[in-house]
Simulated scan of single mutants.
Amino acid sequence: MIIADYEFAGEGMQRVFENEKWTVGIKNWKPANDVTGMDCLERHNKTDELFVLTEGACTLIYANETEKGLEFGSVKMEPGKVFNIPATLWHNTITQKDTKMILIEDSNTSMENSDILMLDNDQIVAIRSLA
């Protein structure tokens, strides 16, 4: 038996470890997560998702559904802290080019039990003001 290690240096996210219970990914900057490129939110309907910032800067953007529409909020991540995105919470990450994060989620999380919400121009402006 040996100890394995994993890395990913490309743009975006890649799952680097997976078993029957959970998955670990490395998420790096990509144009769609830049403040000028973000145009959507996502949610995972059955599972929480965890993020740990290891390098750079990241703002977690989230939205709660209300009778008046989406209410946006943001959290600036701090390196070394674990941030939990609860199941069904609309969210996305705004990152800079030197950003690297660890992502941990249930191995059954997929697009089959997740949703993508495309944002309109007013929503994009609102999110950019939070970054």
Rank of each mutant, 00 (worst) to 15 (best):
residue 72 F to A: 02
residue 3 I to C: 07
residue 90 W to L: 08
residue 27 K to E: 04
residue 7 E to G: 06
residue 113 N to E: 04
residue 26 I to T: 03
residue 51 F to M: 08
residue 45 N to Y: 03
residue 16 V to G: 00
residue 110 S to W: 06
residue 51 F to R: 03
residue 49 E to P: 01
residue 7 E to P: 00
residue 65 E to V: 15
residue 9 A to W: 06
residue 78 E to P: 03
residue 34 D to L: 04
residue 77 M to G: 05
residue 12 G to H: 09
residue 52 V to Y: 02
residue 54 T to K: 02
residue 87 A to D: 04
residue 64 N to W: 06
residue 90 W to K: 01
residue 69 G to R: 07
residue 113 N to C: 11
residue 106 D to V: 00
residue 129 S to K: 15
residue 57 A to C: 02
residue 47 T to E: 14
residue 8 F to V: 13
residue 104 I to E: 04
residue 101 M to V: 08
residue 28 N to I: 01
residue 1 M to V: 06
residue 58 C to A: 15
residue 83 F to K: 03
residue 55 E to I: 00
residue 91 H to E: 09
residue 73 G to Y: 12
residue 126 A to N: 12
residue 130 L to C: 09
residue 120 D to W: 01
residue 46 K to P: 02
residue 115 D to T: 10
residue 36 T to N: 13
residue 92 N to T: 12
residue 119 L to E: 07
residue 81 K to A: 07
residue 51 F to C: 02
residue 91 H to S: 04
residue 80 G to P: 02
residue 90 W to D: 06
residue 85 I to D: 00
residue 11 E to D: 11
residue 38 M to W: 04
residue 96 Q to R: 12
residue 22 W to H: 12
residue 33 N to D: 15
residue 84 N to D: 04
residue 53 L to D: 05
residue 127 I to D: 03
residue 80 G to M: 10
residue 12 G to C: 06
residue 33 N to Q: 12
residue 37 G to D: 07
residue 112 E to G: 02
residue 31 P to A: 10
residue 31 P to I: 08
residue 87 A to P: 03
residue 59 T to V: 12
residue 116 I to N: 08
residue 52 V to P: 01
residue 116 I to A: 12
residue 48 D to E: 07
residue 16 V to C: 01
residue 39 D to M: 08
residue 25 G to D: 05
residue 13 M to F: 09
residue 70 L to R: 09
residue 40 C to Q: 12
residue 32 A to T: 14
residue 32 A to N: 13
residue 56 G to M: 06
residue 65 E to I: 13
residue 43 R to T: 00
residue 101 M to K: 01
residue 115 D to M: 03
residue 104 I to Y: 01
residue 128 R to E: 11
residue 4 A to H: 14
residue 86 P to H: 05
residue 32 A to H: 10
residue 4 A to E: 14
residue 99 T to G: 03
residue 118 M to I: 14
residue 131 A to D: 15
residue 77 M to V: 06
residue 63 A to L: 09
residue 60 L to Q: 13
residue 38 M to P: 02
residue 28 N to H: 01
residue 48 D to Y: 07
residue 60 L to F: 01
residue 109 T to W: 01
residue 115 D to W: 03
residue 4 A to M: 10
residue 106 D to Q: 11
residue 82 V to W: 00
residue 60 L to S: 05
residue 50 L to T: 05
residue 66 T to P: 15
residue 52 V to G: 00
residue 123 Q to F: 05
residue 64 N to E: 15
residue 48 D to G: 08
residue 68 K to Y: 11
residue 71 E to D: 13
residue 20 E to G: 10
residue 119 L to N: 09
residue 96 Q to V: 15
residue 71 E to F: 05
residue 83 F to M: 13
residue 85 I to Q: 00
residue 36 T to S: 11
residue 31 P to H: 11
residue 54 T to D: 00
residue 9 A to P: 02
residue 36 T to H: 14
residue 25 G to Q: 02
residue 42 E to M: 10
residue 110 S to T: 13
residue 27 K to V: 15
residue 106 D to R: 09
residue 39 D to K: 15
residue 129 S to H: 13
residue 14 Q to H: 09
residue 20 E to F: 04
residue 3 I to E: 13
residue 49 E to A: 11
residue 34 D to V: 02
residue 66 T to L: 07
residue 35 V to K: 15
residue 6 Y to V: 01
residue 43 R to W: 00
residue 12 G to L: 07
residue 95 T to N: 06
residue 7 E to T: 12
residue 103 L to K: 06
residue 72 F to E: 09
residue 41 L to C: 07
residue 56 G to Q: 05
residue 43 R to P: 05
residue 3 I to S: 09
residue 11 E to V: 04
residue 107 S to A: 15
residue 125 V to R: 15
residue 35 V to R: 14
